[in-house]
Measured scan of single mutants.
Amino acid sequence: EIEQGFLPKGWEVRHAPNGRPFFIDHNTKTTTWEDPRLKIPAHLRG
């Protein structure tokens, strides 16, 4: 299961009806299937 707590500020994870997680960026009011944490360099992750 995906943990909400480690998402960047302003992001939220939800699950589509088929169970697939998607990510909501409230900063830009966009959604994506890609986990935003995967784009953060390892040394900047919490």
Score class of each variant (00 low, 15 high):
His26Val: 06
Ile24Arg: 04
Phe6Ser: 15
Gly5Lys: 14
Asp35Cys: 05
Pro8Phe: 07
Pro17Ala: 12
Pro8Cys: 00
Phe23Asp: 03
Gly19Val: 01
His15Ala: 12
Phe6Cys: 15
Ile40Gly: 14
Arg45Asp: 15
Lys39Thr: 13
Trp33Leu: 06
Gly10Ala: 02
Pro8Val: 00
Leu44Trp: 10
Trp33Glu: 09
Ile40Trp: 13
Thr30Tyr: 02
Glu34Gly: 05
Leu38His: 08
Pro36Leu: 00
Pro17Tyr: 03
Leu7Asp: 04
Thr30Gly: 04
Leu44Asn: 07
Pro41Val: 11
Thr31Phe: 06
Asp25Thr: 00
Gly10Phe: 04
Ala16Ser: 12
Gly46Arg: 11
His26Trp: 07
His15Arg: 14
Glu34Trp: 08
Phe22Ile: 10
Asn18Ala: 03
Gly19Ser: 03
Ala42Pro: 12
Pro41Glu: 10
Ile2Gln: 15
His15Ile: 13
His15Ser: 12
Glu1Met: 05
Arg14His: 05
Pro8Lys: 15
Thr30Asp: 07
Asp35Lys: 02
Ile2Trp: 08
Leu7Trp: 04
His43Ile: 10
Ile24Phe: 05
Trp11Ala: 02
Lys29Glu: 07
Leu44Gly: 15
Glu3His: 03
Asn18Gly: 13
Ile40Ala: 14
Lys29His: 09
Thr28Met: 05
Gly5Trp: 12
Phe23His: 03
Ala16Asn: 06
Phe23Leu: 03
Arg45His: 15
His26Pro: 09
Glu1Phe: 13
His43Pro: 15
Glu12Cys: 02
Val13Glu: 15
Asn18Ile: 00
Gly10Asn: 11
Pro21Lys: 14
Trp33Tyr: 10
Leu38Arg: 14
Gly5His: 07
Arg14Asn: 02
His43Arg: 10
Ala42Phe: 09
Pro8Gln: 02
Pro41Leu: 05
Arg14Ile: 04
Glu1Ala: 08
Pro21Asn: 05
Asn18Gln: 00
Ile24Met: 04
Thr32Tyr: 04
Ala42Asn: 13
Glu34Val: 10
Asn18Ser: 09
His43Tyr: 13
Thr28Gly: 10
Ile2Asn: 14
Pro8Ile: 04
Asp35Glu: 02
Asn27Cys: 06
His26Leu: 05
Thr30Ala: 07
Phe6Gly: 15
Lys29Ile: 00
Lys29Ser: 09
Phe22Glu: 06
Asp25Ile: 02
Leu7Lys: 04
Pro21Ile: 14
Glu3Ala: 09
Ile2Leu: 15
Leu38Ile: 13
Ile40Ser: 14
Gly10Ser: 01
Arg37Cys: 04
Phe23Val: 03
Gln4His: 10
Pro17Asn: 08
Lys39Arg: 14
Arg14Val: 10
Glu34Asp: 07
Pro41Asp: 10
Asp35Asn: 00
Pro17Lys: 11
Lys39Tyr: 07
Arg20Gln: 15
Arg20Gly: 01
Lys9Val: 09
Leu44Pro: 15
Pro8Ser: 00
Thr28His: 07
Pro8His: 15
Leu44Asp: 15
Asn27Phe: 10
Trp11Met: 04
Val13Leu: 11
Ile2Phe: 11
Leu44Ala: 15
Lys29Asn: 12
Gln4Asp: 08
Phe22Ala: 03
Pro17Ser: 13
Glu3Ser: 13
Thr30Arg: 10
Thr30Leu: 08
Leu7His: 04
Trp33Gln: 07
Pro8Ala: 02
Trp11His: 02
Lys29Thr: 04
Trp11Cys: 06
Leu38Glu: 12
Gln4Met: 06
Lys39Ser: 12
Gly19Cys: 01
Gly19Lys: 02
Ala16Gly: 11
Gly19Asn: 04
Arg45Asn: 14
Arg14Lys: 15
Glu34Arg: 08
Arg45Glu: 15
Lys29Trp: 08
Asn27His: 04
Pro36Trp: 00
Phe22Cys: 11
Phe23Pro: 02
Ile24Gly: 00
Phe23Met: 02
Asp25Val: 00
Asn27Leu: 06
Gly5Met: 10
Leu44Arg: 09
Asp25Arg: 03
Phe6Lys: 15
His43Phe: 09
Ala16Cys: 11
Gln4Ile: 07
Ala16Val: 05
His43Asp: 10
Phe6Arg: 15
Lys29Met: 08
Pro21Val: 11
Pro41Gln: 07
Phe6Met: 07
Thr28Arg: 07
Ala42Ser: 12
His43Trp: 07
Arg14Glu: 04
Pro8Asp: 03
Ile24Asp: 00
Gly5Asp: 15
Glu3Thr: 13
Asp25Tyr: 02
Lys9Pro: 09
Pro36Met: 00
Leu7Phe: 05
Ala42Met: 10
Leu7Asn: 00
Leu38Pro: 12
Ile2Ala: 11
Ala16Tyr: 03
Thr31Ile: 11
Phe6Asp: 15
Ile2Glu: 13
Trp33Ile: 12
Arg37Phe: 03
Asp25Met: 00
Gly5Val: 10
Leu44Glu: 12
Leu7Met: 10
Gly5Asn: 14
Leu44Gln: 14
Arg14Pro: 06
Thr32Trp: 02
Glu1Gly: 08
Glu1Ser: 07
Gln4Val: 12
Arg14Ser: 08
His43Gly: 12
Ile24Gln: 00
Glu3Ile: 11
Phe6Trp: 13
Arg45Ile: 05
Phe23Ala: 06
Ile2Tyr: 07
Ile24Tyr: 15
Gly5Ala: 13
Pro21Thr: 05
Arg37Met: 07
Ile40Phe: 09
Asp35Ala: 09
Ile40Asn: 10
Lys9Arg: 10
Phe6Ile: 15
Asp35Val: 02
Asn18His: 03
Asn27Tyr: 04
Pro8Tyr: 01
Arg45Gln: 11
Glu3Asp: 05
Lys9His: 09
His15Lys: 15
His15Asn: 11
Gln4Tyr: 13
Phe6Ala: 15
Phe22Gly: 03
Arg45Leu: 10
Ala16Arg: 03
Gly10Cys: 03
His26Ala: 03
Arg20Thr: 09
Gly5Gln: 08
Ile40Tyr: 08
His43Ser: 14
Gly19Tyr: 01
Ile40Cys: 07
Gly10Gln: 00
Ala16Asp: 13
Glu12Gly: 01
Thr31His: 04
Ile24His: 05
Lys29Ala: 09
Leu38Phe: 09
Ile24Pro: 01
Thr30Ser: 11
Arg20Met: 13
Thr32Ala: 02
Gly10Thr: 00
Ile24Ala: 02
Ile40Glu: 09
Gly10His: 05
Val13Tyr: 02
Pro17Met: 13
Arg14Cys: 12
Gly5Thr: 14
Glu3Tyr: 12
Gly19Gln: 03
Lys9Ser: 13
Leu7Val: 04
Leu44Lys: 10
Phe23Gln: 02
Thr28Cys: 03
Trp33Pro: 04
Pro21Cys: 12
